[in-house]
């Protein structure tokens, strides 16, 4: 009994519906019309366009993600929000961790270290602070000082001044901040728009591989997306360079995955 490999959600058309959530072309339009709000909105927009221009240094990134991230990879000093996938967040941590950087996970008691190790994250250099309590900002700031990359739940509320200070610290220390969940203040938002699991039937098999359509917002506001398999994300930054968005071999000849060959051709599209 072979189930259809791809979920029906894959049939949806571009552009991705999440573009509205993650990007506001002009925040001042949405807020109140008072001059202060307009100034704040414009300032935010200037900041977002300025971020990571000249002084940016790139952190090693998994190639499958490097293609769609703004600037061609994780920027040191950058902030990224991963909308809905811990796998994606782990893939972002994996690149720096494989080159010996220290990583930190704050406020995520459910983070699976076993999966993290599967992504090539070095557990000896992974610091977990599952419960920072009300001191989220202090703890995050303290860890930004010492580790290269910080993964955290997006805070419920962060005042613009606090965020500006944290951002300055990120830039000064050359660290990157990845938040899990929708967070509009980040430089770029990455998310899984569509996903299909393979290997599972109705009562048979087990989960083997996953194909995903990943989207990332650019500073210009456009969305970029790529079709990747879970195994592409787990590749090391150096070794997986050639495979890019190609499907891993075990998907190409597996019986449940035959349908996916046409759906997930290696391609990279830009949408406006």
């Amino acid at each position: 009994m072979t189930p259809p490999a791809a979920g029906p959600s894959l049939a949806r058309d571009e552009p991705s519906p999440d573009s509205e959530d993650t990007f506001q072309p002009n925040p001042a339009d949405r807020r109140g019309t008072s001059p202060a709000d307009v100034a704040l909105g414009l300032q935010a927009r200037i900041n977002s366009m300025q971020a990571g221009k000249l002084d940016s240094r790139r952190l090693p990134t998994v190639p499958a993600l490097a293609r769609i991230l703004p600037g061609g990879g994780l920027q040191s000093g950058g902030s990224y929000s991963v909308r809905n996938s811990t796998f994606l967040a782990m893939a972002l941590l994996a690149g720096p961790s494989a080159t010996g950087a220290w990583c930190s996970v704050i406020g995520m008691p459910d983070f699976s270290v076993e999966a993290a190790q599967g992504f090539g994250i070095n557990l000896e250099r992974l610091i977990l602070v599952p419960d920072p309590g009300p001191q989220w900002l202090t703890v995050t700031a303290a860890l930004v000082d010492v580790v290269s990359i910080v993964l955290t739940r997006s805070p419920e509320h962060l005042a613009p001044t606090e965020w500006a200070r944290l951002k300055a610290r990120l830039r000064q220390r050359g660290a990157a901040l990845i938040t899990l969940g929708n967070w509009k203040q980040s430089d770029s938002t990455i998310g899984v728009a569509e996903s299909a699991w393979e290997g599972l039937g109705s009562g048979t098999g087990h989960l083997r591989a996953r194909s995903m359509k990943i989207t990332a917002t650019q500073p210009s506001g456009r969305l970029r997306h790529a079709y990747v398999g879970l195994a592409d994300l787990q590749g090391t930054p150096a070794g997986a360079a050639l495979r890019g968005t190609a499907l891993p071999p075990h998907l190409q000849h597996g019986t449940p995955g035959t349908a996916s060959g046409t759906l997930f051709e290696p391609r990279l599209m830009k949408s406006s």
Binding site: Q117, L126, V129, P130, A142
Partner: peptide, 27 residues
């Protein structure tokens, strides 16, 4: 080297949250 900095940073977090709040994990 860098590990000394790591240690100082983590000790700071530990003094804020307690000894058991900053963890490493093994499988």
């Amino acid at each position: 080297g860098p590990d000394e900095g790591i240690h100082h940073g983590l000790a700071r977090v530990q003094s804020m949250l307690g000894h058991g709040a900053v963890l490493t994990a093994v499988i």
